[in-house]
Design a protein around this nucleic acid. Structure first.
Length: 424
RNA sequence: GGAGAUGUGUCAGAGCGGUCGAAUGAGCACGCUUGGAAAGCGUGUAAUGGUGAAAGCCAUUCGAGAGUUCGAAUCUCUCCAUCUCCGCCA
């Protein structure tokens, strides 16, 4: 959520900034106009309310002395009528303003490259060398199915498309990766958390998933407005919702494993084969809640921490800075990590690490008390460290052998009970 | 799932429908006192919005929302959370 005062005061700059996104900025004129109305109506209705309060006190005084107050009471009735009318108008204006404001994306960091689409993203780092195969590399779905350890068909029978059953070696690989990644993040100073996998509306509003992106979520048919979490970023960030913390508490660094649930509406036909785009997948997530002065440094720390995982697994990757046309709603600056996928002969997203500035903090009302003793909004950051299913994809494909077996990266051996390869 | 109880400021804990943003105590901050500390004394101790150059003033907030009333922390309704007992269950 943007600060309406910021929009008013830096109108041209805000307009230019958001114009770099694929976002219709004409709504900005409307919201400034609404804010003017809001102020006028606020003053009007509050003045009447003050008058009513004053008269009510006088009525109390009179009644205490057993005097007649009917004259004042009829005066109150008139004021009340006017006030209610204005208060209703005010509410309407406020609601309208709020719903528009809730749909405006975050301002972009100056470092975010300007561009129209993913083609304009900027590579900031490249690591490792894609392996030269002396045979045609299979894709991970074929590898897994041939091993009898990935079963999409049965999952479809039980649940539907875009679900999978892992078995034996690959099931263990998934679990090993979760533990390995979490251990790594903990070693970097992140605190391990385990949160609910269901969140309510208010939490999803806080991170910016609602109201605009409801179609990407699974909503439960429960009495409460509950949703399956699309990422534990939601639950981790909302831990501090509606609180004012002491400066000394920051930075807060969380890491958590969770399954993630996404409806993938609108992605029909994309990545239909394999593990890349599932309705349910596992992820180890980092969330940082920090002082504004700390967020840039922590963003770099998070980027470094996730890239280290890929390096330990010896998977070739590149890091890119998302451009203004491709970056997410809540983010001011995002790095994506893309891992090499041999069968597709390209890099595919495996992690996204974003600095949201105070955008989520405003929505979720997360604050700290500054040096002057005044509450101020914190900064929030989130990043995958990493998407586990896609890491399995990368390992299966990059470590595949001609005979259909898959070697296991050395760093995972202890997590696999000493297993060094997966074979039938 | 059934029965009952509770929900007030940083915490504990008062609060008859009227002057209650809310007694009292603790904590915390500052000052006095002290060689230093403790004790003691004094002062202060919310957020949001509006207005204003500022001091300030006004409005809202006593779990959330709605209602009754000239006036609600106090009355009514709905919801949420917590606790106790029973039932069920990993």
């Amino acid at each position: 959520m943007l600060d309406i005062k910021k929009i008013e005061n830096d109108f041209e700059a805000v307009k230019k900034n958001l114009g770099n996104r694929n976002f219709d900025i004409s709504i900005l004129d409307q919201i400034v106009e609404l804010n003017k109305q809001r102020k006028i109506l606020t003053t009007a209705s509050e003045t009447k309310k003050a008058e009513i309060n004053k008269l009510s006190r006088e009525i109390g005084e009179l009644k205490k002395n057993k005097q007649d107050a009917s004259n004042l009471m009829s005066q109150v009735a008139t004021f009340k009528n006017d006030m209610e009318k204005e208060a209703n108008e005010l509410e309407e204006v406020q609601n309208k303003q709020f719903s528009i404001l809730a749909g405006i994306p975050n301002l972009l960091d100056a470092a975010t490259p300007v561009g129209k689409s993913e083609d304009d993203n900027v590579e900031v780092k490249k690591w490792g060398h894609p392996r030269n195969f002396d045979f045609t590399p299979a894709d991970h779905a074929d590898i897994g199915e041939k091993l009898g350890m990935l079963d999409f068909e049965t999952a479809a029978k039980i649940t539907g498309a875009r679900f999978v059953i892992y078995k034996s070696g690959i099931a263990r690989l998934e679990r090993a990766l979760i533990n390995f990644m979490l251990d790594h993040q903990i070693s970097k100073g992140f605190t391990e958390m385990m949160t609910p996998f269901i969140a309510h509306e208010r939490s999803l509003f806080g991170t910016g998933n609602l109201p605009k992106f409801e179609d990407q979520l699974f909503k439960l048919n429960s009495e409460q407005p509950w949703y399956l979490i699309p990422t534990s970023e939601v639950t981790l960030t909302n831990i501090k919702r509606e609180t004012i913390s002491e400066e000394s508490e920051f930075p807060i660094l969380y890491a958590a494993y969770s399954p993630c649930f996404r409806s993938e509406a609108g992605s029909h036909g994309k990545d239909v084969k394999g593990l890349i785009r599932m309705h349910q997948f596992n992820k180890v997530e980092m969330v940082s809640i920090c002082l504004p002065s700390q967020s840039e440094e922590i963003h770099q720390k998070m980027l470094a921490s996730s890239t280290e995982i890929l390096e330990k697994l010896n998977l070739p990757y590149r890091a890119i800075a998302l451009c203004s046309g491709d970056i997410g709603f809540a983010s001011q600056k995002t790095y994506d990590l893309e891992v090499w996928v041999p069968s597709q002969n390209k890099y595919r997203e495996i992690s996204s690490i974003s600095n949201c500035g105070d955008f989520q903090a405003r929505r979720a009302n997360i604050r700290f008390r500054n040096k002057e003793g005044k509450p101020e909004f914190v900064h929030t950051l989130n990043g995958s460290g990493l998407a586990v299913g896609r890491t399995v994809v990368a390992i299966l494909e990059n470590y595949q052998q001609k005979d259909g077996s898959v070697q296991i990266p050395e760093v995972l051996w202890p997590y696999m009970g000493g297993m060094k390869e997966i074979r039938k």
